[in-house]
């Protein structure tokens, strides 16, 4: 079975079966948040896992999507289309800032992306005329039940959102898996492991990094748009440093090298704070500790460890 088909089947099955475990509609809401985070993290898997770059400002791209969806309907662009506009905007911004900073190595990129995220946050907080300032702004709602009703299905809003986001995640994961096993993805993985060797084969290292950076920015932006539509409200916190850290932590916990890691990381770190108040209370410490412990004890993250468990079981 090809890796893409396998990812498609496994992820679809998981998302189809998950609602069987939901005791109430509230869990669909958590499910939606998990899925939206999975989408951001899948983008991060492309960046960190495929090409090996750290971004500490991905919330900035997430916020670009979220605010595109919040702001643009007032200018006559239909909400659904704002997802696309936001994604294009995020891609352009990523291309613009990525070009100079991706020539440089690890630390510089980390800091520059961190600065980028804070810059976005700053603009969103200070330009109140456009963004509503620190209090945020209301997002025009869309009727997510409509497509289901068209098929004659009566459905609650949260549940409709769950299925829409599930489709988005499956698409996102299939695209990322396709990429991993394609010429472009191979170039990314080559750059990750040895940029000198990659360059000696004609791979344009800077360009390859930039491509991954742009792709990951688009994932984050689409996730941001979905969250804005789902919450019907956005605040500058979407661009907050901590949000970038959240995305990062989910990525490393799940395991940056595979898309399965994205789902696992997002699932654990989205649902735990919702269910355990202790976790929410000590969120910073928890995230920090998880990052350190994962890197020290289990550098590949959970997904490879779980995969190993399965393959051992089969033997």
């Amino acid at each position: 079975m090809s890796p893409v088909l396998r990812a498609f089947l496994i992820i679809s099955a998981l998302l189809l079966l998950a609602p069987l475990l939901f005791p109430s509609v509230y869990y669909y809401r958590i499910g939606v948040l998990v899925l939206i985070n999975t989408l951001s993290v899948t983008g991060m898997v492309v960046l960190l896992g495929y090409v090996g770059l750290v971004s500490l400002g991905h919330a900035g791209f997430f916020a670009i999507g979220a605010y595109a969806t919040a702001v643009l309907p007032a200018y006559g662009i239909p909400p659904i289309l704002t997802i696309l506009v936001g994604a294009i905007g995020a891609a352009l911004v990523a291309a613009f800032i990525g070009k100079p900073i991706l020539r440089l190595k690890g630390h510089y990129l980390a800091i520059a992306t961190l600065g980028f995220g804070m810059l976005v946050w700053m603009v969103l907080s200070k330009e109140a005329w456009l963004t509503g300032g620190p209090d945020g702004m209301v997002v025009e709602s869309i009727d997510v039940k409509a497509p289901f009703e068209l098929l004659g299905i009566k459905i609650k809003t949260a549940i409709a959102w769950y299925w829409i986001c599930a489709v988005a995640v499956v698409i996102g994961i299939v695209l990322a898996t396709n990429l991993a096993n394609s010429p472009a993805g191979r170039a990314m993985r080559a750059v990750h492991e040895s940029d000198v060797a990659a360059a000696s084969l004609g791979i344009d290292v800077a360009r390859t990094k930039l491509t991954a950076f742009i792709i990951s920015a688009v994932y984050a932006s689409v996730a941001g748009s979905l969250l804005a539509l789902f919450n019907r409200y956005v605040t500058p916190d979407t661009a907050d440093f901590l949000h970038s850290i959240e995305i990062m932590t989910m990525t490393v916990l799940g395991g940056a090298s595979s898309v399965y890691g994205a789902l696992i990381g997002a699932l654990i770190l989205t649902s735990l704070p919702q269910m355990l108040t202790v976790f929410a209370e000590y969120e910073n410490m928890m995230f920090g500790a998880i990052m350190i412990l994962t890197m020290v004890l289990m550098r590949q993250g959970l997904a490879p460890a779980i995969a190993q468990l399965f393959s051992r079981g089969r033997k």
Partner: peptide, 21 residues
């Protein structure tokens, strides 16, 4: 895969085509 990476310059490079398979 190591050796396939060496085919880079002979491959049509279109990242969107790659993502959509």
């Amino acid at each position: 895969d190591n050796v396939m990476a060496g085919r880079h310059l002979h491959e049509r490079r279109n990242v969107l085509a790659d993502m959509f398979g």
